[in-house]
């Protein structure tokens, strides 16, 4: 047994990985020859590596629902591409814009904004999400009222009108969530704004299927802001866009009252 103080496990790990300067390595190597405890610790590091390697030899199988959903998403993306550029979702959302494009340099951002900005004002999204049973016919009426062509494809975001309202707060219609504050975070990548455009085609409103949920949260909006129910992968979510702040935020309809993410555009 050595009388030297035992080196921290991090140092032993760095020694094993060859990350220590030579002189420190020598000191540790000397210590290890006399210290059983540290030798055992070193062995345990090797064993951790072995456990990981052992577990890693098994490639996990992608579950069927995940696989099906992925295939579906790729098919849609391929169909969009086949339909030409700008993609189908971009054209749909661009058509739903109430004002003409103003900037050529921000096509994606605009598409993203359009995708989520078409439900203009108020509580309409809330009503839809609460499953008031009026989705199909109401959708046609509101889209006509909004001056948008009613022959849009199923699954497209339904634009609608409501009363301008309230601060940007969220209250749950479900039993649990407290009222959260919306964090102001800017994601480092513009990727998320771009990705938003892809969600347009997954909007559940107007699809005619069982797409509404009474479990989703109530959404209140600042004037000018807009919201839409979307499918976030397989789960329902709400997208809120504040055109003044140029910010899009996605909220889960499930457990977390805080945003899934928020991005500037």
């Amino acid at each position: 047994m050595s009388d030297l103080p035992h080196p921290p496990l991090d140092d032993l790990a760095d020694l094993r990985a060859g990350l220590l300067p030579p002189e420190r390595s020598e000191v540790l190597a000397g210590h290890l020859t006399t210290c059983d405890e540290c030798s055992a610790a070193l062995t345990s590091l090797d064993e951790v590596e072995a456990i990981l390697a052992d577990s890693g030899t098994t490639t996990l199988r992608m579950p069927a629902p995940v696989s099906a959903s992925l295939d579906d998403a790729l098919r849609r993306t391929a169909a969009e591409r086949a339909a030409g550029v700008p993609s189908l979702s971009e054209r749909r959302t661009a058509a739903a814009l109430s004002k003409p494009r103003t900037s050529a340099g921000s096509r994606w951002a605009l598409a993203a904004g359009a995708a989520v900005a078409t439900v203009v004002l108020g509580f309409t999204a809330v009503d839809l999400l609460q499953g008031d049973g009026s989705s199909s016919s109401d959708s046609a009426a509101t889209s006509a009222a909004a001056g948008v062509s009613a022959d849009r494809a199923p699954g497209q975001l339904a634009p609608s009108r409501g009363a301008a309202a309230a601060p940007s707060t969220f209250t749950a219609t479900g039993p649990t969530q407290p009222s959260p504050t919306v964090r102001d975070e800017t994601l480092p990548r513009p990727l998320t704004a771009k990705t938003l455009a892809g969600y347009a085609q997954r909007f559940t409103r107007g699809s005619g299927s069982a797409s509404v949920t009474p479990r989703c949260r109530r959404v209140e909006l600042v004037p000018g802001a807009s919201a839409a129910d979307v499918r976030w992968h397989r789960s329902l979510a709400v997208v809120v866009v504040d055109p003044t702040a140029r910010r899009a935020t996605v909220y889960s309809c499930q457990a977390h009252p805080s945003p899934l993410f928020s991005t500037s555009y």
């Binding site: 405890e37 540290c38 055992a40 610790a41 062995t43 345990s44 064993e47 951790v48 590596e49 072995a50």
Partner: peptide, 19 residues
């Protein structure tokens, strides 16, 4: 505790490995 017993992880897992 990991540092007190020689080969504790290996003993538990039944797997020892060298570099």
């Amino acid at each position: 505790p990991p540092r007190s017993v020689e080969g504790s992880v290996a003993a538990a897992v039944g797997h020892a490995a060298t570099d």
